[in-house]
């Protein structure tokens, strides 16, 4: 079972906090949240907000990396051929490249091409699973930065209408 959230180590403690704070867990998180503000703060200013507003893959990648990737068998992307629901599409990236420092996941046909990007310090594996929204049938591209170069893998994911309402 999943570990319970927050700085509170145990269930009873959490419930005490809940009782004290009333409904809604936001208050419960207050002590941790203050710390989080400090922790994420340094990186928050690095958020590449302009990259996430680019409409095309090329514009987003040029802005983020200043260059374009080359397709490589060392770059791996696992995504469904047909999405069950475009709102939740599991995407798994991985690479057999040394020293990957950045991974970016792009959905070419989305209103904004860049879906998410990860900075990897030394020791962190380029294998990352996450879930993205696809607005329609699109190529999904995983881009890896390694040794100052960019490598990519592409997979087309069909997004169809569900029948079951």
């Amino acid at each position: 079972m999943a570990e319970r959230n927050a700085s509170s180590p145990s269930g009873p403690r959490r419930r005490q906090l809940l009782a004290a704070a009333g409904p809604g867990a936001a208050a419960l998180l207050a002590p941790g949240a203050a710390r989080a503000g400090a922790a994420v703060g340094a990186n928050a200013s690095n958020y590449p907000s302009k990259v996430f507003r680019q409409k095309t893959e090329a514009a987003a990648l040029k802005l983020m990396f200043g260059k374009m990737p080359e397709a490589s068998a060392a770059a791996k992307l696992t995504a469904p051929r047909i999405a069950e629901n475009g709102a939740v599409v599991p995407v798994i990236v991985d690479a057999t490249l040394p020293g990957v420092t950045t991974v970016a996941i792009i959905a070419k046909e989305n209103p904004f091409a860049m879906a998410c990007a990860y900075r990897l310090p030394p020791g962190t594996s380029p294998a990352i699973s996450s879930q993205v929204k696809l607005a329609k049938t699109t190529d999904v591209v995983a881009v890896f930065e390694s040794g100052g170069k960019l490598f990519s893998a592409t997979k087309n994911v069909k997004v169809t209408l569900g029948g079951c309402g």
């Binding site: 990186n43 690095n46 958020y47 590449p48 990259v51 996430f52 709102a87 939740v88 599409v89 959905a107 989305n110 904004f112 860049m114 879906a115 998410c116 990007a117 990860y118 900075r119 990897l120 310090p121 962190t124 594996s125 294998a127 990352i128 699973s129 996450s130 879930q131 993205v132 929204k133 696809l134």
Partner: peptide
């Protein structure tokens, strides 16, 4: 790990690394 997420990350996001 530092993740930069845009609006195309799914609701109630899951991540594994």
């Amino acid at each position: 790990l530092t993740g930069f997420w845009g609006p195309a990350v799914s609701k109630n996001p899951f991540i594994k690394f």
